[in-house]
Design a protein around this nucleic acid. Structure first.
Lengths: 356, 356
DNA sequence: TTTAGCACTTGGCGTGCTTGAGTGCTAACA
DNA sequence: TGTTAGCACTCAAGCACGCCAAGTGCTAAA
């Protein structure tokens, strides 16, 4: 398990096997390594080394007459020590920044857009996850009178974002009613969590509003819904069809199990939430059975957290165990870096020379 | 092709074959029909009838020693004349209304929510599609001052919906600037289509705003984006994993082709847009090669249009040709009916516990 | 016109054989 | 002592073959 235990040549061979298997998806044999990968040793020697590596648990043999495939331990070693030097090309970097700038002007769309980006840059399935922060509060209310039976409620949240809801009423309203309600809301409905929107508060507001008291209920409902939406954990998945390109998912039952997890938000959130191990550089890599869900025993989950306005956003991908780890890790690093810079730095509007 | 050409018994047998094949997914033979479906004729007679039906093009035989499977013509006949009397159970109706009421308070979420509903009620993949209305205009602007460097722009659109954008500025702003801008916008930026947001208008506004002219550009950009979003056709697909339950998609390459269409919005929109044939009751049913995309030659697409604020929304499902047509058609009818009632009727919030 | 009976067709499945890739082991070699 | 060549061994994949069961079409009788 320790680097120390592996001679340089064993490391070289292990890395070559993982690389080759990631690339071709099939067991790799000694002859291939000796000729095509230019390991400076004969097939026989390589076989000896491979037998050692298998005994140590880094490789497995699907059957006697086949080559070797990395075990989870093998992938783990590879991930922990051999890669991390993939560098995106100039154009890839530009594209990430370009697309982030273009799309992420509204906070709401982050999840879907980020998962789409993760998928499109890596050729695996992309995921984006926001945790349930809980305890969101409204710092300030405002309102806009739209028509006799409609108004817009504006809520400035403690997370720093602004949310609005259009509220339709079954009865007419005059602007003065709305002004009074907004004022009252700013006094009685600020700094409450969703639990704080209790009956006593509602009754009090209704009394204050007098004849226009009927507007209180729909408004409170809208406030409650808004807080819940922000509070609630949510997850987006994009690019499941990318998985179909990998032979490991050509078995439909395997795929169905995995997709089952991906489509049931709750299960997937469980998987992500329970995986708390922190890697040195903030990237979480869970290989096969390291995942808490049994349906993911043949898949790798990689993600990284980034914080926006105090809320945690996790960005990552899901794919076969023989994933292109170095590329994926690098992409996620860049993506999260880009997101972080965009939201946590300077007020600055995205940048120049955009022609909208 | 005409009803007239088929004796009642042939119709009965054809219907029984389609029903059985929808249910079991396998070719159906004469013996099964005679015993399990209670056709009042012997297997031999049924075989004769089936041979006739095959000659007429309603059935096909995968191979000599197998039973019969409906051809596209067979499905078409079935759809056109034999079904349409499925009635949803009481609880199904209640659930549709319940979920519509619960979720569709904000217009924005319609697409994703409706596609999810279509999927969950039918066990096929759900789709929801809004056409690009084009020519959306802003009828009225309003604004809310959030902080020195942030304000909320409120746009009342010609479609009847209200959109907001939070605009962050790289420089500070006083409320008076914002008030003046909003006033100017209401004079110069209303009733324009997105094409109307041209340089002359922008320059004029910048001049009007004087020192605070720099706020014009980001605001116009936000307006333009909003109009584009509303203008742009969009489509949502939900529940692709439901397809995995049907053996016709156990072949991965088949599935991949179909998912390719489903994930590329443009291609899917093409498919839906080009299918203009109107059915008598407004339901579009495209069976196999009736679809314009080759990748859908083994799938059926069913959808129905509903109009909300002048914009067309199409709701439907995608699944194998042996789809449960009667159930799906009925569900879509109910779903579109519910949506229509919810948005196009009375100002009213949907009423509690109404069973319609 | 319907039905019983029968010969016929054919995909699916299990068995056995062959092949080739890849191994482990032994013995020779540097 | 570590490396290499050679060789026997193993085993999945592919193929041929035969059997079986399902389902048919046809013929002849009711």
């Amino acid at each position: 398990m320790e680097d120390k235990r592996l001679t340089p040549r064993k490391q070289q061979i292990l890395k070559a096997i993982v690389d080759a298997h990631i690339h071709h998806g099939e067991p790799v044999g000694s002859k291939y390594l000796a000729t095509d990968v230019q390991i400076s040793a004969s097939p026989a020697t390589i076989r000896n080394e491979m037998a050692d590596l298998e005994a140590m648990g880094y490789l497995v043999q699907p059957h006697t007459s086949a080559g070797r495939v990395p075990s989870e331990l093998g992938y783990r070693f590879y991930v922990d020590s051999l890669v991390r030097q993939y560098t995106a090309t100039r154009s890839e970097i530009d594209e990430i920044n370009e697309r982030l700038r273009y799309k992420l002007s509204e906070m709401d769309e982050i999840l879907s857009e980020v998962s789409r980006l993760a998928a499109s840059f890596t050729d695996y399935t992309g995921i984006a996850f926001k945790s349930g922060a809980g305890q969101v509060r409204v710092n300030k209310y405002d309102s806009v009178y739209l028509s006799a039976k409609e108004f817009l409620l504006v809520m400035m949240l403690s997370t720093g974002t602004v949310k609005t809801k259009t509220i339709r009423l079954p009865f007419p309203l005059v602007p003065e009613d709305l002004r009074r309600f907004t004022e009252a809301a700013n006094i009685y409905l600020t700094n409450l969590t969703s639990d704080g929107l209790s009956m006593p508060v509602i009754t009090k507001l209704e009394a204050l509003m007098g004849a226009a008291g009927a507007l209180v209920h729909p408004a409170i409902k809208a406030i409650y819904e808004t807080m819940s939406e922000v509070d609630t954990a949510d997850i987006k998945v994009d690019g499941v069809n990318k998985l179909l390109n990998y032979p490991e998912y050509s078995d439909v039952s395997e795929l169905r199990e995995l997709l089952g997890v991906l489509e049931e938000k709750d299960r997937l959130m469980d998987v992500i939430s329970t995986q708390a191990t922190e890697e040195s550089d903030g990237i979480h890599v869970y290989i096969g059975t390291e995942n808490s869900s049994d349906a993911m025993k043949n898949t790798t989950l990689i993600f990284k957290d980034v914080y926006i306005g105090g809320k945690k956003l996790s960005v990552g991908v899901i794919g076969p165990k023989r994933m292109n780890y170095s590329k994926v890790i690098d992409m996620i690093n860049r993506l999260t870096f880009g997101i972080d810079r965009m939201f946590n730095e300077g007020p600055g509007l995205p940048d120049p020379k955009d022609k909208y």
